[in-house]
Design a protein around this nucleic acid. Structure first.
Lengths: 233, 233
DNA sequence: GATAAAAATTGGTACTACCATTTATCCAGA
DNA sequence: TCTGGATAAATGGTAGTACCAATTTTTATC
């Protein structure tokens, strides 16, 4: 028969999902203070209780941090404990090269699928991260890790594939640290940073043009470039 | 000087500690139902809110489990840690098609890397799984899920990439369920089963020949075949 | 201008009421 | 006796309000 298992959706869980997406997409950047519980409740038209439960869940998961009297803040992935991947990397059991290999497999396909399925909202989110990176480079001569990570996460969300998204959630801290390391090494190398920006724009263009082939190839080139960059110096 | 280690003892945290102790000490055994929130609040002379916050924390940590209308239960350590993937699939939030999409990205690359790095031991492990599948088909007219999953895991191990391997570990249960479903649908379709075996052998041959291109392509064909198989019936 | 007091902001607790789901119980009808 | 439905009870989930506690900002006072 194969009927459908009914799904009860708790309000706090829906709030939870929304806030988590905002964090991963970079609307709430690491270290930044998020909106107060009362305002969130008002915006989402739910009670403060539900918002509170959602936030508490994110706090015990380590994504947010409470400070009484001040507010709630996005905790930075650097000092987030308990991530087995980050631990493995700290123990030198996993290298950034390993990370890039996996990203090559995952993200090329993600870009391809994103080109087929991204909504206008998704495209805007991707473009926003892209513009943020460009602004960063123009004003501070470097690229913000948060914006870069948000760009890649936004593409993943565009695939609309729950398995992909779930995998990327577990992957985020690792991705963040890897990108941070990459960008740190490229610091002061203006040319490399501009190349990277160019790659990102090419990826975005391909997705926006709905050309899945080009999106795949652009992502492949981008990651291959980073691999090459670090293998030669 | 080393003065005061100020204690910001939140009430919910104290309740949290107490309940956790009870679980660890075994007063609340796995599978058992704990006292209702209202009774706990009464016993500890605190509000239900505080008890609720404490319990919620334990729930998101995976030690407890909520069932509306029934009560709160101590979750058994077996299914405690992280299998939100299987849960997501059970809730039909993720389909087998989603799984195949992700596998396409991951495993094609894994096969490619395996062709470059597999040791003789790895090759033997892969071949063993392959032969087991062939035996299964010859003797029982079907393919064992375990052998199929083992084949793919063996390829992942051959990549020697800790990140890949870690990801696949978290992925295994999901992979297993997916393969099982695939094989169940192909049951009695002798031709399809033989095709699948052929794909596996092609993958193995390519890896054994150290041809990373062929390995990538063989894996791509295999997964695409399964995708096609299920999209048309 | 410096310092103390007051106000505003924001997370933490408490309490109450009610909703939603599950289970148990009872009862009428075939 | 069995079936089905209605009812009630138990229990987690939401909502709303009020207030407490800590922090920051503003204001008042000297």
């Amino acid at each position: 028969m194969n009927l459908k298992p009914i799904k009860p959706k708790r309000i706090s869980d829906q709030v939870f999902e929304q806030i988590r997406e905002l964090i991963y997409k970079g609307s709430f950047k690491p270290g930044q203070q998020i909106l107060p519980e009362r305002e969130l409740a008002l915006s989402m038209a739910v009670s403060r209780t539900s918002v509170r439960n959602a936030i508490n869940k994110l706090v015990t998961m380590g994504l947010l941090e409470h400070r009484q009297g001040q507010g709630t803040f996005v905790s930075s992935p650097d000092n987030r404990p308990g991530n087995p991947l980050a631990a493995a990397m700290a123990a030198d059991e996993a290298t950034f090269g390993d990370l890039l290999e996996v990203r090559m497999g995952l993200e090329c396909n993600a870009a391809m699928l994103a080109a087929q399925r991204a909504t206008d909202t998704d495209l805007k989110a991707i473009e926003k991260s892209l513009e943020e990176m460009e602004d960063d480079l123009a004003t501070t001569d470097k690229i913000g890790t948060g914006a870069d990570a948000a760009f890649h996460m936004a593409i993943t969300f565009s695939t609309k594939n729950p398995v992909f998204i779930h995998l990327m959630h577990n992957f985020y801290d690792f991705l963040f640290l890897g990108i941070k390391k990459n960008l740190t090494h490229m610091y002061m190398d203006r040319e490399a940073l501009e190349d990277v920006i160019g790659h990102h724009r090419a990826i975005y263009d391909a997705i926006q043009r709905r050309s899945s082939q080009d999106a795949f190839e652009a992502m492949r080139k981008h990651i291959a470039y980073v691999q090459e960059y670090f293998s030669t110096r």
